[in-house]
Design a protein around this nucleic acid. Structure first.
Lengths: 201, 201
DNA sequence: TAAAGGTAAGTGAGCGCTTAGATTCGGCGC
DNA sequence: GCGCCGAATCTAAGCGCTCACTTACCTTTA
């Protein structure tokens, strides 16, 4: 493991990762069905057949990308929403985290939000459960803020949906052209979130 | 023209419309590249070759759908944003209209917001211009409200982007399962919009 | 030497689109 | 009113090509 030279194992791991990375880029730019396995293999610097050395199918590549992405988001948002803070601080932190992911990783975000229809039914159900968990985290922070009187909104669940919507749609329009850094966007949206939930001034 | 019987002309018009309709449904459900011209023809009750009697290519179907959809939205939002009302009323009306379209026509909306990458460069530029016009309408209402002191937001342009984001993302998650009518959603989002732009109470 | 990584050369299936020709129907001379 | 023409609609068949994926085999390394 500490050997500097290239081991067969390490080469294989790197190829696997490069294929996943190439798939993210291609799926994001051209969509799942618009991407060929040759596109992915070529971008990873391998022959078309190499895709199947490391992954069972094109759909399994999408599944792996989707699982990883949603797990990262769920963990990040759950962390941000931890209890030792005011309701306003928790909503701001969760939205900031969510927006940071969707801006910084907008390529991955595009894939895991807009290409899910290409998953098998079983894989789609798995991802749907992860998405429900993310939704629940955000909804519960808003609901608790309403219960405690810190927030004022006629429908906490729909307010939470709106907050997630704002983050997800970043994946569609965000480009890192330097005009808005992910951090500046996160600040702006954290402020928006407090307005949306009707946080007391 | 007033003849009740089926003329060759009328049959052709109806087939053309049915092909467009079938394309919207299929593109929305499976994406542009996930849809075959055979899918579209079969759904329209025609043979695969009939697609090419009425449309030059699969891409031209997408283009026709996108142009029509964006023109409808631009006209509706422009109407809603007409000047003889307060800034708050104008923002609420524009958002209500925008949300109504994206909820009622969520199938079309999904296509014209998420399948644009499949357009030719020239067609994409045409659609981009329409989208810029829609963006401008929304941005100018917000900017005017800020100038007049009716609104308070640190970045009117980004606030307008957020309002459009909320509408567009409806196309991704909205299902007409009866839990939320388009009208109820439009009311909720019109209220959200006033919070987002910081409308004075 | 066994296991893993990788490829050249395919496989059948399905793709967008074309072609050649059958069918339908309004318009027009008589 | 009748018969036929030309234009429009539509299809059966299939073209060349690309797709996701497989197989048989070679190479590298623990």
């Amino acid at each position: 493991m500490s050997d500097v030279r290239t081991s067969t194992q390490a080469r294989g791991d790197r190829s696997r990762a490069r294929l996943l990375d190439a798939a993210v880029q291609a799926f994001s730019a051209k969509g799942f069905h618009g991407t060929s396995t040759r596109d992915i293999a070529t971008a990873a610097g391998l022959s078309p057949a190499a895709v199947y050395v490391h992954h069972r199918s094109k759909e399994e590549l999408l599944h792996a990308i989707a699982v990883r992405g949603h797990e990262v988001i769920l963990e990040a948002v759950t962390d941000a929403a931890r209890a030792d803070a005011t309701a306003a601080e928790r909503v701001a932190a969760a939205v900031r985290t969510y927006v940071l992911f969707h801006a910084r990783s907008h390529t991955t975000a595009r894939v895991i939000n807009y290409e899910l229809a290409a998953l098998t039914d079983e894989h789609l159900r798995e991802i749907a459960a992860l998405r429900r968990a993310i939704d629940t985290v955000m909804r519960e922070i808003v609901e608790e803020g309403v219960r405690s009187g810190d927030f004022d909104t006629p429908d906490p669940a729909k307010a939470a949906t709106a907050l997630l919507s704002l983050g997800i749609d970043l994946a569609r329009w965000y480009r890192d052209d330097g005009s808005w850094t992910p951090e500046a966007l996160a600040d702006f949206y954290a402020d928006l979130a407090l307005r949306v939930v009707g946080a007391r001034p």
